[in-house]
């Protein structure tokens, strides 16, 4: 599974950092960082929540 973020869309709401803190982090510069772009399937549920809750639809999961 690959985590893809469209950084043109991301507005750093930070909901993904709440849904999947293991994968997403917003740093003090205000930008989002992906901590692990290819997490294993145990993260799938949390990542799907992050995708759904992103207010700008910036996150995608690819196979």
């Amino acid at each position: 599974m690959k985590v893809v973020v469209d950084f043109d869309l991301c507005q750093s709401h930070g909901l993904c950092t709440q849904a999947a803190p293991e994968i997403f982090e917003i740093r003090d510069d205000g930008f989002l960082y992906i901590l692990n772009e290819t997490p294993d399937d145990s993260m799938k549920k949390k990542l799907e929540t992050a995708v759904r809750e992103c207010p700008t639809g910036a996150i995608k999961l690819e196979a």
Partner: peptide, 15 residues
């Protein structure tokens, strides 16, 4: 205001 990290930390704390 323009501080998402801290806001989400506080939301987590409440949740």
């Amino acid at each position: 205001f323009n501080r998402p990290v801290q806001l989400m930390g506080l939301r987590r704390e409440m949740a």
